[in-house]
Design a protein around this nucleic acid. Sequence first.
DNA 1: CTCTTGATTGCACACGTGTACGGACGAAGA
DNA 2: TCTTCGTCCGTACACGTGTGCAATCAAGAG
Lengths: 355, 355
Amino acid sequence: MLDKEAGKAAGAAQPAGQKRALRQPSIKDIARLARVSHPTVSRALQNSPLVNAQTAAKIRKIADEAGYRASAVARGLVTRRTRTIGLVVTTVADPFASEVVCGVEETANDHGYSVFLADSNADPVREKKVVQAFAERRVDGIIVTSSRVGALYLPLLAEMMVPIMLVNDQYPGAFVHSVMISNFEGMRAASEHLVGLGHRRIAYLGDKFGYASDTERVAGYRAALDAAGIPAMPELIVHGDGKPEAAMTAIEKLLTLADPPTAVCCYNDMSALGAMRQIRARGLRVPEDISVAGFDDLFFASYTQPPLTTVRQPMRRMGQLAMENLIKLMSGEESVEQIKVDAELIVRESTTMRS
Amino acid sequence: MLDKEAGKAAGAAQPAGQKRALRQPSIKDIARLARVSHPTVSRALQNSPLVNAQTAAKIRKIADEAGYRASAVARGLVTRRTRTIGLVVTTVADPFASEVVCGVEETANDHGYSVFLADSNADPVREKKVVQAFAERRVDGIIVTSSRVGALYLPLLAEMMVPIMLVNDQYPGAFVHSVMISNFEGMRAASEHLVGLGHRRIAYLGDKFGYASDTERVAGYRAALDAAGIPAMPELIVHGDGKPEAAMTAIEKLLTLADPPTAVCCYNDMSALGAMRQIRARGLRVPEDISVAGFDDLFFASYTQPPLTTVRQPMRRMGQLAMENLIKLMSGEESVEQIKVDAELIVRESTTMRS
DNA sequence: CTCTTGATTGCACACGTGTACGGACGAAGA
DNA sequence: TCTTCGTCCGTACACGTGTGCAATCAAGAG
């Protein structure tokens, strides 16, 4: 026993002698200091009832003084759970995504999970690398935001056999769960609002990628117009890409119409931002000449000039919900397949009565 | 040898029999399939010259068909390097931060690193948890953005003995490296621009937290005024918190002055957003009554009404630089202590000649 | 005083990978 | 034929933690 310990000490001393400072203390170091075995240290730090209270206290004290931090990687190896999730997003630079990320990260941390963040940039090559990285990291679960990527590599994700949670993307697979906003009702409310203001020629500025969310929002827009007895006017539906620049060129088609619309519903706030800019560029005023409504209620919506009427998505809350349910799924509980949160119309000053 | 193999198979079969699908294939599974030892598989997958080319090809084929993904956690345990970094930010919901995150994540992935993201929310308790989590995860390096947190827990970070990179935060410690924007020159350029437009009563709307960046920007502002022979006017310096709301109340103090300023330099674009809103709320016009300049050039700066004159920070590039240099540091190379990138004045329409 | 029981603790594994070391084998040279 | 050398592969560790099981010890019951 003695020579064994000596051997250990020597074995540890050889490499440690030169670079002791470069290695973090291990559970065995603490065990040696406390003159107990390493399993006892392990149990003490887990507050196991199997170890004497005094011994545990002493061990914890020593561990604390030594600045001991248990290695999550070693623990993950033996427990087969890393308490880690992968979060993939087209780009965090998008305000919608960053709010969702915020919500996810917040509740993940509260539950002892760490999150790996990865931008896909909607680039298939990068997406593959990202998924492969998550698989190698042995994440316990995955959350995906921002749509279309889903259809491309969800089969790959399925191989990893971990729960997957989608935010604002509806993918028809049995193994996926999702958090969604009520796109239909939200956009219908915005459209009804415009109808109520007397508008008849109401345009829709959509997203050319044809996300499920865009499809649902157009449907809500149509439903409101139908209910008001306004016939469908195909020339009033144009497409951007969800970003300001494309919205500027898209709305140009509406403005140059012989009989331009008096109001426009935008797929999202970013599109509305571009739309308003282009409207002004043509010497028209918002809302006097054209009313503009957005979708999302990003932080800048109340600071545009005029402040933007929009449909609020509780983005952070959606991130929280996604993470909360992912945690349930990861611990084996069953969870509702699709969580739907309500959209809320926020009326500001970018919409007004038809003049 | 035979019974040993049989023992292995039995040992693996017992738990695997029920839940084989729940376990990802290990290197030993591949070894068994390829009828070689697991070290050979390990070497083959690393393209080691120590293994026969044909054997290696065969092994790689088998591994590929089996959907084998080497466990980064097991590898991290033995190599003592996780190829993982921790990225702490006050909140990703802040557009500045999210751009930096984007740059970091992009180059991290390109170099085989994964990034743990954590929001501190400037909450000390959460910050502690975050740092502890990073320590337990055995990250190879850390990047911190958004200032003041640095001073609070950098000593903790130092304990982990990993390189630390700061973005836009100057902390006087030998062990930290940073990438910064030329705050002084940037704000001086903005101020000179206003002086050049004939303004004499130029205000500064700063950040009450007194970040190093704020201090440097005020100095740049003062320098420009001094150079123009404009005396310092303390009542023209007010403080927000870098966000729109606080900027609204801060600028109110300027607007109610007996002799209000004709131009205002804002600490950042978010402050400028609030400032412009409040200016309009009081019935004044930008830039006719008051010129407004921002700092950062966030994505919305060109979409405000009027488009915002501001000082551009190459945020994404700064994130890239931080990551690139962190990689150098992690591989033992020495790196420049402080990387400084240039700020660039972007003149738009929110500033004009003094009327 | 002996047996039983409960409270603590240590031993021996396992997790999945990387690597130093030695052994087997064939080819080439003496 | 024997030695030598290079190629290729397997054996035996190690990394740091968690956990089933056995061992030890003290105390109480009989």
